Lab assay of single mutants.
Amino acid sequence: MLEGKVKWFNSEKGFGFIEVEGQDDVFVHFSAIQGEGFKTLEEGQAVSAEIVEGNRGPQAANVTKEA
């Protein structure tokens, strides 16, 4: 698991990027966000996630919002 913060997230398109210190930004799709209801993230929000290899490079999986 790694910790980072949301760089930006487009709720209409359902994707965005997470900033991780010392690494390239990581793509995040709404389907990777854990929880019930409408899955979205806010800019600057702290999150933790796993990194997996997607079709277009590294992407976030099992994204959870930090308190």
Rank of each mutant, 00 (worst) to 15 (best):
M1L: 12
L2C: 10
L2Y: 11
L2N: 06
L2K: 12
E3A: 14
E3H: 15
E3Y: 15
E3M: 15
E3W: 15
G4S: 02
G4P: 01
K5W: 10
K5P: 02
K5H: 11
K5V: 12
V6R: 02
V6A: 02
V6K: 01
V6L: 01
K7R: 10
K7L: 06
K7T: 05
K7M: 03
K7G: 02
K7Q: 03
K7E: 00
K7H: 04
W8I: 02
W8Q: 00
W8Y: 08
W8D: 00
W8C: 09
F9E: 00
F9M: 00
F9N: 00
F9H: 00
N10C: 11
S11H: 13
S11G: 09
S11M: 10
E12G: 10
K13E: 02
K13Q: 07
K13R: 11
K13N: 05
G14M: 03
G14T: 03
F15E: 01
F15S: 01
F15D: 01
G16D: 00
G16T: 03
F17E: 00
F17P: 00
F17N: 00
F17G: 00
F17H: 01
I18D: 00
E19Y: 11
E19R: 13
E19Q: 12
V20H: 03
E21F: 12
E21P: 13
E21D: 11
E21C: 14
E21H: 11
G22Q: 04
G22H: 06
G22D: 07
Q23R: 14
Q23H: 14
Q23D: 06
D24R: 14
D24F: 11
D24T: 10
D24L: 12
D25Q: 06
D25E: 05
D25S: 07
V26G: 00
V26H: 00
F27K: 02
F27V: 00
F27P: 00
F27N: 01
V28I: 08
V28H: 03
H29D: 03
H29T: 03
H29K: 04
F30R: 07
F30Y: 12
S31C: 09
S31Q: 06
S31R: 08
A32N: 08
I33L: 07
I33E: 04
I33R: 00
I33Y: 03
I33M: 04
Q34P: 06
Q34V: 14
Q34W: 09
G35Y: 08
G35D: 08
G35R: 00
G35S: 09
G35C: 12
E36H: 12
G37E: 06
G37Y: 05
G37A: 06
G37L: 05
G37H: 05
K39A: 06
K39Q: 09
T40E: 06
T40C: 13
L41K: 01
E42I: 14
E42A: 12
E42P: 03
E43W: 13
E43T: 15
E43P: 15
E43D: 09
G44C: 09
G44A: 04
G44R: 05
G44V: 04
Q45S: 08
Q45D: 12
Q45G: 06
Q45T: 09
A46Y: 14
A46Q: 13
A46M: 13
S48R: 15
S48Y: 14
S48W: 15
A49T: 11
A49D: 02
A49P: 02
A49G: 12
A49H: 09
A49I: 15
A49Y: 15
A49W: 13
A49M: 15
A49K: 02
E50P: 03
E50G: 08
E50S: 12
I51V: 10
I51Q: 04
I51N: 04
I51T: 04
I51Y: 08
V52S: 08
V52D: 03
V52Q: 08
V52I: 11
E53T: 13
E53L: 14
E53W: 15
E53K: 13
G54N: 06
G54T: 14
N55H: 13
N55K: 15
N55D: 12
N55T: 13
R56P: 07
R56V: 07
P58E: 04
P58K: 12
P58I: 11
P58A: 08
P58Q: 08
P58G: 05
Q59H: 09
Q59K: 08
Q59I: 10
A60L: 04
A60N: 03
A60V: 06
A60C: 06
A60Y: 01
A61W: 10
A61E: 08
A61C: 12
A61L: 11
N62M: 11
N62C: 12
N62D: 04
N62Q: 09
V63F: 02
T64I: 15
T64D: 06
K65W: 09
K65R: 11
K65I: 14
E66T: 15
E66H: 15
E66W: 13
A67K: 12
A67M: 12
A67H: 11
A67Y: 13
